[in-house]
Design a protein around this nucleic acid. Structure first.
Length: 769
DNA sequence: GAGTTTGAAACT
DNA sequence: CAGTTTCAAACTC
C-alpha cells in the first residue's frame, strides 16, 4: 500500500494497482477501512504511486488525524503554497490515483467502496492537490480525473473532477490562492460534517448547495475566463475541497502548523515523512480521520452528491443521482430546519462563498491587501464561526469556515484554551458547534455570526457570483456565514466589528473604513485581540452557547435544538422586547435566559411560541428571573431534584421537557419550563422546535456563564457528550450575568467538563472534527 | 439611501 | 461595579 513512502518505498509503484486490486487482500482492505484509501491516496500523492495504505497507516486513529486536521486548517494556506512545487507530483499522483480509482471501479464495488468510503481518499487522490494543482491537472487530465465515492449503500458515485477543475485552470495565481482558501473552507466543512453523525446531512446539503450554485452559475464554459476566474475557482476549489476536504485539511493544516511536531505524526504513521511528506501524512491521516470519525460515507456521499449535482451536465450516473437525492432527502426530511439551516449555512455559505467570498477573505484584497498566506496558520484564531456552523458541531463548523472569511489566525488565546481546554482549534470548533446548533433561521446570521465570532474563518461571502446563489445561501443560512461590517471608526479592531468579533478578517464586501482587520495588520489584529481577551477571555467566544451536549464525540447529534442554546451573556434589551435583532438572543435564535436583563422580553425563541400558553407565566418567570437569579436557581434546583430532571440525560441542557414543570412558576408544559426535562429527550429536541421555543428556565439550566462557554464547547466535543452541561448534582445555573461571573459552581462544572475532555487537543476528535 | 433607534462594547 | 459614551447594526422612512 505505501509503496513509495520514504519509509516504505519498498513497494514498486509500477504495478501495484493491478496487483493490489486483483488481490483479495486489497479488496478486503479497501472494504475494511476508508483509512486505507486515504493512505493509499496519500501515498499516491506523495509518491506518485497510488499505493495502498499500509495497515499501520490505515489504523491510524481517526481522532488523531482529525485533530491534526483541525490544526491543519490554519496551516493549510502556508502549506499549499509551499506545496506548489509538488503540483507536478500531485498531478502524477492524481493520475495514478485516478488510475487506481478507475481500476478499482473495474475491479468491483468492493474496491470502489473502499475508496469511496474515505471521502478523503477519493478526494485526496483526485482532489488533494487540486487547489494548487487544479489548473495543471485539469488541463492534462481533465477527463481522467474522477471522483469515486461509495455511498454507505455501496452505491458508487463518480464525480467528474474535470468539470470542477476546469474552471480553475483559468485562474490566476491569486485565484489559486483563493481557491486554496475555498478549499480550506471546504475541507473544514468536510471535517465538520464528517465528525457529526448528521454531518452527512450537512455535507449533503452543502453539496447540494454547491451543486445548485454551480448550476445557477452560467456554465463554466460559457463564462468568460474572468468570470471563471472569479467564480469558478471558488466553486472548483470548493468542490475540490468538498471532495478533498478530509485530505486537504490534513495536508494543509497539519502540515504547516503542528505538522512538524506534531501529534499527528506521533499518532499517525510510524514512518515520518519528509517535510512535504508531512503534508501527505497529515493528509493521509486526515482522510482516515474523516472516515473514522465522521460518518465516513455520508460525507463522501455527500461530496459525491455535490459533485454529481454540479456535474450533472458533465456526468451523472443514476447511482449518483440516487445517492445525492438520498442524501438530500435525508437531510431535508429529517432535520428539515436544522439541516436546512445548518446545511444551507454550511453549504450555501460555503458554496456560495467559496468562490467569491474566499476571494475576499482568502484572497488578498486589493484594498486590504491581505493574502491568506499572510495569515499565519498558526492560530485557530477565532474560527468559532466555522465551528459553530456544524450543528453537530463539526458540520456546522465547516460551513462557517467555508463561509469564506479568513480566520484570524491567532495563537491560541487563553480564552480559546479555556473554552475547549483543548487546542484553540478544538475550542473554536466546539464553540462554533454550539452556536450553530442553536441558531434559528434568523439566527443563522447570528449563529453564523456567533460562529464567526469565535471561529468563523471566512466570513465573507464566497463571492457569490450570482445573486441567485447568494440568495439561496441566504435563504438557508441567512448569510450567516458571511459577515460584513460597516465600521467607520473602530478600524474593525473592536468587538463592534462583527468581522473582528467573529475572528475574521474583513473582506471586500465589508464597507468598513480604515480597516485594520486584515492580514496586512495581522500583528495589530492579534494584539488587539489579546487585549480584548485579556479583559474578557470569552470575548470572542460564540455569543450563543449551546447547552446541550449535542454532539457526542462520535458526532452524534444530541443537541441541535435552539432550545439548548442560550446567549452567553444574555441581553439587556429595553425597548425591543427582544423581538428584534437588536436583541442578541433573538438574533442568535435563542430564547432569553436568566442571564438576560431584558425588559418586557417577548423573545419568541425563548418561550414565546412554545410557551405561549404559558406566556404569562413566562413573563412572570422572566421577571422573576430578572429580579432574582436565586429564583431561577431554586427552580433549577427543584427541577434537578425532579426525578425526571435527575435523569442523566445526555443533554442536560436539553431544553425542555414540557411535561415536567420545573418550578412552580412554570407550568410544566411550556418549553420554557425547562431544561431538566430536556435532559430527558435529547434527541427529540433536535428535531422538535427548539429553535423557536426555548424556555428561559431551560436557559437557566442551559445557560452557561461565559466562563462556561468553553465547557459547553468542550462538552460538545467531549466524547462523553452525554455529560450534562449541568450535572444533576451540580447546579449549573449560575446567577445571571454580570454574571458570567464565574460562580464557583460553574467553574467546577467547567473544570469537570474539562477533565472529561482529553487534555490534549489532539485527543478530542470530536471537537477537532 | 439617509436618518433614527437600539443595545452591545468600550470607557470612565 | 455602575454610569456614560461610543459604536455599528438594525430598523424605519
Amino acid at each position: 500500500m505505501e509503496l513509495n513512502t520514504p519509509n516504505k518505498n519498498q513497494i514498486p509503484a509500477t504495478n501495484p494497482l493491478s496487483q493490489f486490486e486483483d488481490s483479495p487482500v486489497f479488496n478486503y482492505i479497501n472494504n475494511l477501512s476508508p483509512i486505507e484509501l486515504v493512505k493509499s491516496m496519500h501515498n499516491g500523492q506523495a509518491f506518485n504511486f497510488p499505493s495502498f495504505a499500509s495497515p499501520l497507516s490505515v489504523f491510524a486513529s481517526p481522532q488523531l488525524s482529525s485533530q491534526s486536521d483541525a490544526r491543519s486548517f490554519m496551516r493549510r494556506d502556508r502549506f499549499s503554497e509551499p506545496s506548489k512545487p509538488e503540483l507536478l507530483q500531485s498531478k502524477d499522483e492524481n493520475d495514478t490515483s485516478i488510475g487506481v480509482f478507475e481500476a478499482a471501479q473495474l475491479t468491483g464495488l468492493s474496491v470502489e467502496q473502499s475508496e469511496c468510503s474515505t471521502p478523503a481518499n477519493s478526494s485526496k487522490g483526485v482532489i488533494t492537490k487540486l487547489p494548487d494543482e487544479h489548473m495543471e491537472l485539469a488541463i492534462e487530465e481533465p477527463d481522467t480525473l474522477k471522483y469515486y465515492c461509495a455511498s454507505p449503500d455501496d452505491n458508487i458515485i463518480m464525480v467528474p473532477l474535470k468539470a470542477i477543475i476546469e474552471p480553475q485552470m483559468a485562474g490566476d495565481p491569486n485565484e489559486r490562492y483563493c481557491s486554496r482558501n475555498s478549499e480550506k473552507d471546504l475541507r473544514k466543512i468536510g471535517r465538520t460534517g464528517q465528525n457529526e453523525d448528521e454531518a452527512g446531512c450537512d455535507w449533503v446539503a452543502l453539496i447540494s448547495d454547491v451543486a445548485d450554485i454551480l448550476t445557477l452559475e452560467p456554465s463554466i464554459d460559457e463564462e468568460s475566463a474572468e468570470k471563471q476566474k472569479m467564480v469558478d475557482p471558488g466553486t472548483i476549489s470548493f468542490i475540490s475541497n468538498v471532495l478533498q476536504a478530509p485530505q486537504d485539511n490534513s495536508n494543509d493544516s497539519e502540515t504547516s502548523y503542528y505538522a512538524g511536531s506534531s501529534q499527528q505524526r506521533e499518532i499517525g504513521e510510524p514512518g515520518i515523512q519528509p517535510v512535504e511528506s508531512g503534508e501527505q501524512n497529515e493528509a493521509d491521516q486526515t482522510p482516515s480521520v474523516f472516515s473514522g470519525t465522521l460518518p465516513d460515507k455520508p460525507i463522501v456521499n455527500h461530496a459525491a452528491a455535490k459533485v454529481d449535482i454540479r456535474g450533472k451536465s458533465y456526468q451523472s450516473s443514476s447511482k449518483q443521482h440516487k445517492i445525492r437525492r438520498r442524501c438530500l432527502v435525508f437531510e431535508m426530511g429529517a432535520h428539515k430546519k436544522k439541516l436546512a439551516f445548518e446545511s444551507s449555512s454550511s453549504t450555501s455559505s460555503q458554496s456560495d462563498h467559496m468562490g467569491a467570498n474566499i476571494e475576499k477573505h482568502a484572497t488578498p484584497r486589493a484594498d486590504k491587501g491581505k493574502t491568506l498566506s499572510a495569515l499565519p496558520g498558526r492560530g485557530i484564531g477565532l474560527h468559532l464561526n466555522a465551528l459553530t456552523a456544524t450543528s453537530s458541531g463539526n458540520a456546522v463548523k465547516i460551513e462557517t469556515l467555508a463561509s469564506g472569511k479568513q480566520e484570524i489566525s491567532q495563537p491560541p488565546s487563553p480564552a480559546a484554551h479555556m473554552a475547549s481546554g483543548l487546542d484553540p482549534v478544538s475550542k473554536s470548533l466546539a464553540l462554533i458547534t454550539v452556536e450553530t446548533d442553536f441558531a434559528p433561521f434568523d439566527n443563522e446570521d447570528k449563529v453564523m455570526e456567533n460562529v464567526p465570532q469565535t471561529s468563523m474563518v471566512v466570513t465573507e461571502d464566497f463571492g457569490i457570483s450570482s445573486p441567485k446563489m447568494k440568495r439561496q445561501k441566504f435563504e438557508y443560512l441567512g448569510a450567516s456565514s458571511c459577515k460584513r461590517c460597516n465600521c467607520k471608526r473602530s478600524k474593525c479592531l473592536k468587538l463592534y466589528c462583527e468581522c473582528f468579533a467573529a475572528g475574521l478578517y474583513c473582506i471586500e464586501p465589508c464597507s468598513c473604513l480604515e480597516c485594520s482587520n486584515n492580514p496586512a495588520h495581522e500583528d495589530t489584529v492579534l494584539e488587539t485581540r489579546r487585549q480584548i481577551e485579556s479583559r474578557n477571555p470569552l470575548a470572542f467566544a460564540p455569543k450563543v452557547i449551546r447547552n446541550s451536549d449535542s454532539v457526542s464525540e462520535f458526532g452524534e447529534e444530541t443537541n441541535k435544538t435552539p432550545a439548548s442554546a442560550r446567549h452567553k451573556r444574555g441581553c439587556n434589551c429595553k425597548k425591543s422586547s427582544c423581538l428584534k435583532k437588536y436583541c442578541e438572543c433573538f438574533q442568535g435564535g435563542v430564547g432569553c435566559s436568566s442571564y438576560c436583563r431584558c425588559e418586557g422580553c417577548k423573545n419568541t425563541f425563548g418561550c414565546k411560541n412554545g410557551v405561549e400558553e404559558n406566556d404569562l407565566k413566562w413573563g412572570e418567570s422572566k421577571i422573576h428571573e430578572n429580579t432574582s437569579n436565586l429564583n431561577l436557581l431554586d427552580i433549577i434546583e427543584k427541577g434537578e431534584d425532579h426525578p425526571d430532571l435527575m435523569v442523566p440525560s445526555k443533554d442536560s441542557r436539553s431544553p425542555v421537557h414540557p411535561q415536567i414543570p420545573i418550578s412552580g412558576q412554570h407550568s410544566g408544559s411550556s418549553l420554557c419550563d425547562v431544561g431538566p426535562s430536556t435532559k430527558m429527550r435529547p434527541i427529540q429536541r433536535f428535531r422538535t422546535n427548539f429553535f423557536y421555543h426555548q424556555p428561559k428556565y431551560e436557559k437557566h439550566l442551559q445557560v452557561i456563564p461565559e466562563d462556561e462557554t468553553p465547557e459547553i464547547l468542550n462538552r460538545n466535543c467531549l466524547p462523553t457528550s452525554g455529560v450534562k452541561s449541568v450535572s444533576p448534582n451540580s447546579k449549573r445555573v449560575s446567577p445571571p450575568h454580570h454574571g458570567f461571573g464565574p460562580s464557583t459552581t460553574w467553574r467546577r462544572g467547567r473544570k469537570l467538563i474539562l477533565r472529561s475532555v482529553s487534555p490534549s487537543p489532539s485527543l478530542n476528535p470530536p471537537c477537532e472534527q
